[in-house]
Computed example of a mutant assay.
Amino acid sequence: MTMQSILEETKIFLKHLGLNEEPFGVYYADTKPEKSYGPKPGVSISRELEDQRQIDMQEVFKTFSCVMGNIWLARKKNAAAYISSKEYGCPGGVFYCSMMKPNLRFIEHYVTTGFEGTPIHGERYLPSPESMRKFLDTVDPPKAQGKYCIFKPLSLFMDGEEPEFIIFFARPEVLTGLFVQTTFTTGEVDSVASPFGAGCTNILAWPLYYKAKGMEKAVLGGFDPSARKYMKADELTFTISLSLYQKMLKALPESMFNVGENWTTVRKKIDRSKKAWGEND
């Protein structure tokens, strides 16, 4: 499918879903879009510098900028968001988006139990640095195929550009449709995964992990408490590889959206939800 046909089919899919907002695509490139949101350049960071005790984390956090926060701005402005190895913003996000390897050991403590004897008590999302290290070693994003990792609405993709993954932002009623269309397309009952991770982990790092293993899985995310401020109330993320998404679009004519009455009932609930949130068309 060409990008033009994907955009046309996406409009049909969104109408079925009752979703007003188009999905984003993510890809790697050596240049960033002119109209885009991302971090300011930060001080140099790496595992090597960390081991040599040459990183001042207070300096690192002076330019802190969350991947999900920049995507939130891009969603509001119909623009792009980006991250790079130099404009990284977050010492975790730069790893999850394949911009730096290996991860800083700092993250293993910051996300778990913190540092004893310091004001950093940790986020307590996992029980120990060891459990966090196991997670990081497992997800282990591959080396990026470009200087920038870029997120932008599908309609902003130019000729010659192609998203690697498609990211939906949706509430549970709409997610019902995305979930079932995934299982209907793949025929697999476990084709939607929801592993632990930061907001950016579940929209990119885990999808990269499953793609590298040749597994067609959508990833449900948005459960990171730190990233919830950059999402609508009750909203989650749903990420699909481009290849799987194309199959889902082709499967629409025979899906529940066009056959049977079950989706009609859900669609009415979606309309009620949109009205409650003041998001009517």
Score class of each variant (00 low, 15 high):
4 Q>H: 13
256 M>E: 04
226 S>C: 15
137 D>T: 04
265 T>D: 11
165 F>I: 10
142 P>S: 02
229 K>C: 06
99 M>Y: 03
185 T>I: 09
229 K>S: 14
144 A>E: 04
106 F>V: 06
5 S>K: 15
206 W>N: 05
118 T>G: 11
244 L>K: 00
198 A>M: 06
119 P>I: 12
236 L>F: 10
111 V>H: 03
268 K>F: 03
261 E>C: 02
60 V>E: 11
12 I>H: 13
19 L>W: 08
65 S>D: 13
99 M>W: 03
122 G>R: 01
108 E>R: 04
95 F>W: 10
31 T>S: 15
181 Q>G: 04
25 G>I: 10
63 T>E: 08
127 P>W: 04
128 S>M: 10
7 L>V: 10
241 S>T: 15
117 G>R: 11
22 E>N: 11
132 M>P: 04
83 I>T: 15
264 T>V: 14
197 G>H: 00
86 K>R: 11
259 V>C: 13
239 T>N: 05
99 M>V: 10
48 E>A: 14
163 P>I: 04
97 C>K: 09
90 C>Q: 02
263 W>L: 06
130 E>N: 08
269 K>H: 14
249 L>E: 01
280 N>M: 12
172 P>G: 07
9 E>W: 06
11 K>R: 12
246 Q>V: 13
112 T>Y: 02
70 N>L: 00
195 P>G: 07
261 E>S: 12
261 E>H: 09
3 M>S: 06
12 I>Y: 04
196 F>T: 02
185 T>K: 13
107 I>Y: 06
180 V>C: 01
213 K>F: 13
103 N>K: 02
149 C>P: 00
220 L>E: 08
143 K>A: 14
109 H>E: 05
49 L>W: 12
125 Y>I: 02
34 E>F: 06
69 G>Y: 07
59 E>Q: 12
266 V>M: 12
245 Y>K: 04
228 R>H: 06
199 G>A: 05
153 P>K: 05
71 I>A: 09
94 V>N: 00
3 M>G: 10
92 G>S: 11
232 K>F: 02
102 P>L: 02
102 P>C: 01
49 L>F: 09
250 K>Q: 11
192 V>P: 07
115 F>T: 06
100 M>Y: 02
249 L>R: 01
256 M>H: 13
218 A>V: 14
67 V>I: 13
176 T>G: 14
262 N>H: 13
221 G>A: 04
166 I>F: 08
127 P>H: 02
261 E>M: 10
247 K>L: 05
16 H>R: 07
119 P>A: 10
149 C>M: 14
192 V>Y: 07
135 F>S: 04
173 E>I: 09
252 L>H: 07
40 K>H: 11
62 K>C: 08
212 A>D: 14
264 T>Y: 01
120 I>N: 05
191 S>R: 12
180 V>L: 15
135 F>P: 01
4 Q>I: 15
249 L>F: 07
30 D>I: 07
239 T>K: 04
258 N>C: 14
66 C>R: 01
156 L>H: 10
181 Q>V: 06
87 E>G: 05
126 L>W: 02
185 T>S: 13
95 F>L: 08
242 L>Q: 03
30 D>F: 09
